[in-house]
């Protein structure tokens, strides 16, 4: 399901920490990804509605709407959109809960950035 006229994929990074967002941006832009950023769940939902987004990297701990609730909303609005759910030391319970709410992948902070890039590549390939 290739989208016409587009060579690169768009990744939405949802994290309240600006340095974290910049880190992912720096890595992903070096590859063939466009990066959009949202600092909270509300902004993320706005971007998902207005932009053509291929993958979402979503952090759990955020002010306002909790990451898990954002995940549910995303899944409700865009059931096929791949979401990589990220949390700091979440544990098996969060992993399970995130999958239950529709996350495609689950990663625990701190992760190797190399690894999340690989995961994004993998998810995108699978969505094609």
């Amino acid at each position: 399901m290739q989208i016409e006229g587009r060579t690169s994929r768009t990744v939405l990074v949802v994290d309240d920490d600006a340095d974290m967002r910049k880190l992912l941006r720096d890595f992903l832009q070096g590859g063939s990804y466009d990066v959009l950023e949202a600092a909270n769940g509300h902004d993320a939902m706005v971007l998902v509605e207005s932009e053509a987004i291929d993958v979402v990297v979503l952090d759990k701990e955020m002010p306002g709407i909790n990451g898990l609730d954002v995940l549910s909303l995303l899944h409700h609005r865009r059931p096929g959109l791949p979401v990589i759910f990220v949390t700091a030391f979440g544990g098996p319970q969060v992993a399970e809960e995130s999958r239950r709410r529709g996350a495609m992948e689950y990663l625990e902070k701190p992760f190797r950035v190399r690894r999340i890039v690989d995961t994004i590549d993998h998810v995108v390939r699978r969505a094609l």
Binding site: D17, M20, L23, F27, T87, A88, E108, K109, P110
Partner: peptide
Amino acid sequence: VGTPLNIISG
């Protein structure tokens, strides 16, 4: 500390 650690190593 999860996020700061992630940023440092990243």
